[in-house]
Amino acid sequence: MERIPVTSAPPRSNEPLVLAIGKFDGVHIGHQAILRHAREDLGQARLAVMSFWPHPVYALTGNAAYTRLLTPGDEKLRQLERQGVDRFFDVHFTAEYAATPAETFVYEHLAPLQLQRVVVGEDFRFGQGGRATVEDLQRLCGDLGVPVTIVGPVEENGVKVSSSQVRRHLAAGRVEAAEALLGRPYALVGNVVHGDARGRLIGFPTANLGGLESFVMPQNGVYAASIEMQSEDDTRHWFGVVNVGTRPTVNGQDLRVEAHLFGFSGDLYGQPLRVSFLRRVRDEQKFDGVEALTAQIGHDVDFVKRMLGML
């Protein structure tokens, strides 16, 4: 997939495009519905997405929660590519960009893209102050002869699927509910970094995941997980137990994500890992000592293995 950084108007397209526009944080089943509509009747056109970074809520309000995303950076590209997207317009969203008049956005930013069609969700807003609606988009694109497809919301159990809803589920540790809205398990992606090697000393070696500052974190606790190492020359998969937390039994302070991989032995330092959360096992707890912690980890491992049919 081709990524095109954009700071104002995107470069002129040399081929016809069908363009989906939105934040697409999470690429959840609501976003997937938009992309499914965009894939219909592509003909000779390529499927493109225009999205925004940093998150507009952070750019406009400074809300630090939105420095963390469900699908930051390369993870969004990966998920969009899985949905058949060929071209990604990565718009740098600033207060200045947010002040772009609706007419300028359509006549100067969209017009050069050789658009066959534009596809958006029904709650899409654009232009200065986000005051322009999908009806305004239809009217302005109509001036260019470009039809606009408006996709209604997707609901799960009567509740509209949204990135905010996924965030709420993760904050409560409801990773299975988050999976239902995402259409896949929620995953963190990072590189294995050096820890304090306590896991190896107590018989449960763990891989410490670093580089997670841009990801929304699930609630602290112990989880069953699927773990994938994917590098240029090696792809391997394991199940395992993952702890998200501060390790209170050993007076830890910083938040860590530590994965114990079933059946693995060797060195993973520096390797990229994808940790996909399958089920919450328990809260993170402070135990009376390392011996009690070790016994509990053994129970956690057995529980997850039984759950997965490995015992």
Rank of each mutant, 00 (worst) to 15 (best):
Q79C: 08
L80M: 08
L80H: 02
L80G: 03
R82M: 13
R82A: 12
R82T: 08
Q83M: 14
Q83P: 04
R87E: 11
R87N: 05
F89R: 05
F89L: 14
F89W: 15
V91H: 04
V91I: 09
T94R: 07
A95Y: 04
A99G: 06
P101G: 10
P101I: 12
A102D: 07
E103A: 13
E103H: 08
E103P: 00
T104H: 09
F105P: 01
F105N: 02
Y107M: 13
E108D: 14
E108Y: 13
H109L: 11
H109S: 10
H109P: 03
L110Q: 03
L110S: 03
L110W: 05
L110D: 00
A111Y: 13
L113K: 08
L113W: 14
Q114L: 14
L115F: 06
L115R: 02
Q116F: 06
R117W: 04
R117D: 00
R117T: 00
V118I: 15
V118M: 07
V120A: 01
V120M: 01
V120K: 00
V120S: 02
V120F: 02
G121C: 06
G121R: 03
D123L: 04
R125D: 01
R125Q: 05
F126P: 00
Q128A: 15
G129H: 09
G129A: 10
G129L: 12
G130W: 11
R131Y: 05
R131Q: 10
R131K: 13
A132L: 04
T133F: 00
T133V: 05
T133E: 00
V134H: 01
E135I: 06
E135Y: 06
E135A: 11
L137G: 02
Q138I: 09
Q138M: 15
Q138N: 06
Q138T: 10
Q138E: 12
R139Y: 10
L140I: 12
C141M: 09
C141G: 05
G142L: 13
G142P: 05
D143N: 08
D143T: 07
D143M: 12
D143E: 15
D143Y: 13
L144R: 04
G145V: 14
V146R: 05
P147D: 10
P147K: 12
V148Q: 00
T149D: 07
T149G: 01
T149Q: 07
I150K: 03
V151T: 08
V151D: 03
G152P: 06
P153Y: 14
V154T: 12
E155Y: 12
